[in-house]
Amino acid sequence: MAGQYVPGHAGGAQVIKDGERWTLVLVRELNHPRERVWEALTDPKHLREWAPFDVDGDLGHAGATVHLSVANAPRPMISETVVTRADRPSVLEYNWGDKNLRWELESLGDGTRLTLWHNIDRGFIAWGAAGWHICFDVLDRLLAGDPIGRAVGPDALRYDWQRLVDEYAKEFGVTAPKFPGTDVGK
């Protein structure tokens, strides 16, 4: 049940710093085969269940142009996206706005080691880490047949998102900005 979900502590993340350009690297080991994880990363129907965006087409084809729209945003936030690499079921790359995402899926026994590289503005790196942490938990539960529903945007606040933000901010040595319209992030 969704009400019983509480994310674990911050972990499995690092930041690669190149001046003002920071890249969040998250690693998660999933007990699901690469093909199932690939489908969840590329199929719009599956992405609607766990990802922080909706997409109007399949992300699994290099050269495809689709539109990503931020889920649960207070106003429409849509960006045109080009899939720059889609090597099924190992590597997926595309942009989200002016930020790049690279997904690597590595076989790990019967499961998959999923690694995400996402360049994020330095001031929001802890937000990104906490958000993706929760998204990965939701993805794992979805693939296990125990879906809890997407928890992004303001909905993530119900799931200890602020605790995760604070933990990642401390780990990365940054101060997280305040979440708009709340006293979260003080």
Rank of each mutant, 00 (worst) to 15 (best):
V6D: 03
V6E: 01
H9R: 15
Q14R: 11
I16V: 08
K17S: 13
G19Q: 08
T23C: 14
L24I: 10
V27E: 14
N31A: 05
R34Y: 03
A40Q: 12
L41N: 09
L41A: 09
L41I: 12
H46R: 15
R48C: 12
D56S: 03
D56V: 01
L59A: 09
G60Y: 08
H61T: 00
V66T: 06
L68T: 12
P74R: 07
E80C: 06
V82W: 13
V83S: 14
V83L: 08
V91D: 13
V91L: 13
G97F: 09
D98K: 07
L101Q: 11
S107V: 04
R113M: 15
R113D: 15
T115N: 14
L116V: 13
L116M: 13
N119C: 15
N119I: 15
R122G: 10
R122E: 09
R122C: 04
R122P: 07
G123H: 06
G123W: 04
I125R: 09
W127Y: 11
A129T: 10
H133M: 06
L139V: 06
L139C: 09
D140N: 07
R141G: 03
V152P: 00
Y159F: 00
D160S: 04
W161N: 02
Q162R: 00
R163C: 00
D166P: 00
K170D: 11
F172L: 09
T175F: 02
P177A: 05
P177T: 05
P180Q: 03
D183N: 01
G185N: 00
